[in-house]
Amino acid sequence: MKVSKNELMASLKKAFEGLGFQPGDYYDAADMVVWLETHGFDGFDRLQKALAYLNTTAPNHAVLVQEDEQNAVLDGEDSSILLCGSEAVDLLIAQVMQGSAARLQLNNCYNRTFILQRLVKAAQRNIAFVAFWRQEDYCVKVSVAAGAKLPEYSTFAMTELLEPQTLTIFAGKELKIIGEQFSAQLVMGPLLTTFTEAEMAACYLESLERGIEIDEELWQMLDDLVARILVESTESSRAGAGD
């Protein structure tokens, strides 16, 4: 079945609310899922994996374990980027605004591809980002120029063993500054694949024009989560609607 972007957003927000997310969190999480799905990054597949975890535990966020002027380390405590991605990016922005570039490492977190949407949104504040993480046996690198609407997304062969559930993000006023300040940490192996801006834009326009294809089972799963925030209707409650 096909759904619209607005409809999907509304459903996701309520579904995340059903999982116990608070208002800021469920807005952000819904944004992340919709962005990935509409830009060709398999947002629904990733959502299903995230739901398998989120459905079994109370929402928890990352905690700050280490920080200096240019570096911060957060422990995601096995949470999802859907929950701790925003606070990580916010912390990084705050550091960049006080200096020229900063690095943040988020350990023990899952569903890291969702960070793409947060980085693109944050880039609208004229900040550039580079993020990378290990995905199975390869490495994903994302670059977002300051003010850019779309990221550069590439995968590389791994040259060193990265921690499996760690996400590293660099931020600066420009990509060039990040490259200069953190060059040693941004050495990647041979390029494997690239997902171009044109491909992302085409996916987005297609979803806008024709709607977004969603598996009926997943749609039903979201409906079931939404049902958690609904209140049983009674004669008395009908009076609270204007009868």
Partner: peptide, 14 residues
């Protein structure tokens, strides 16, 4: 504010 939100993440929305 970033640190306030890290401390109280459920207040990021408001």
């Amino acid at each position: 504010v970033a640190h306030f939100i890290v401390q109280y993440p459920t207040y990021s929305g408001i």
